[in-house]
Write a protein that binds this DNA or RNA. Structure first.
Lengths: 127, 127
DNA sequence: TAACACTAAGTGTAAAGTGCACATAGGTTA
DNA sequence: TAACCTATGTGCACTTTACACTTAGTGTTA
C-alpha cells in the first residue's frame, strides 16, 4: 500500500483499517458517507479523514458485495447515498477482526523486543 | 500503500513494519541483507519475507541516512553488503515505535468496540 | 567439465491504497 | 447574487509491495 504521502502530521493514518471501520459503523447504524466522515472525525478528534478516501472505499465495499446502497432524499440538502451492510459484509468484518488481532500481536511482539533492548546498547556507527 | 497483492496466504504481511524491524535487527547486530532475510523467516516461521522487498528497503534506509553500508568479503560465496545503524536511524526507530504504539492503540480501540457489539445486533440487509 | 545448488544482491513491472486538489450539484442564508 | 454548507465523487501523483526474473561468486556432484 502506499499512503500517498502523509509522513507529516495531517490526516489519520488508518493503515488498512478504513474498510473494517466503515463496515462496523454501518453495521451499528446504516448511514451515508458524509455522516461517516463526521463519525470518523468525532472519534479521532482533531484529525481529518479524507472524504475522497471514504467515498472511494464505500464504492468498493459495494462492488465487493459487503454493503448495499440506495439514494435517499434529504429534507435539506442534496440526496444521500445510504449504506447498509450485507451478510457477506458481516463475514468480511469478522475476517478483518481476525487479521487485526494478528497484526496487533505482531506489533506487540515488536514493541516487547524493542523494550528489552539493552539501554545504550546496540551497535550504532559514527555518522 | 499498496500491498502488491497477497490477500492469499504467502508472504508476511508486515504492513509498514519492515523498516522498523530492519532497523531493530541491525541495531542489535550489524549484518547483511541475506542474513536479515533468514532472521525474518526464523521469527515468522513458515512465512517467507520477500527478498526483493528486504533489499529495496535496505537501500532506501541508506538513502535516507538511517543506515550505512560497506562491502565485506565472504570466505565462501559472493561479497556481502554489511549494514550498521546510524544515530539518525536510532531516532527513526524510536519514532517508528511511537507510531506503532499509536497504531496498536487504534487497533485495540477498534477490537474493543467490535466485541461490545450486541450479539445478533446490527442492521444487516437481505442480500 | 558441465550441471546444479547455495549464497548474495538487486531490478522491472503491475497492482493497490492513499492524500491532495478539484469538480459537481442541491439547498440555505446574507 | 454570492457565499456557504451539505453531499458525492474523480484525476493524478506518490508510495509500497508481491512476484518474477537477473546477475554473479563459490562449492559439490555426476
Amino acid at each position: 500500500m502506499a499512503t500517498g504521502k502523509n509522513e507529516n502530521g495531517t490526516g489519520i493514518s488508518l493503515d488498512r483499517m478504513i474498510q473494517p471501520m466503515l463496515l462496523m459503523l454501518i453495521l451499528k447504524k446504516p448511514t451515508h458517507g458524509y455522516e461517516l466522515i463526521q463519525s470518523f472525525n468525532a472519534v479521532h478528534e482533531g484529525e481529518i479523514a479524507e472524504p475522497g478516501t471514504i467515498y472511494r472505499n464505500l464504492r468498493r465495499l459495494e462492488r465487493e458485495g459487503f454493503v448495499l446502497s440506495g439514494w435517499e432524499a434529504s429534507e435539506s440538502g442534496p440526496a444521500r447515498r445510504k449504506y447498509a451492510i450485507t451478510e457477506d459484509g458481516i463475514k468480511a468484518l469478522h475476517e478483518a477482526v481476525l487479521k487485526l488481532e494478528k497484526q496487533k500481536q505482531q506489533i506487540e511482539d515488536f514493541l516487547t523486543e524493542y523494550n528489552h533492548l539493552p539501554k545504550k546498547g546496540g551497535h550504532s556507527i559514527e555518522k
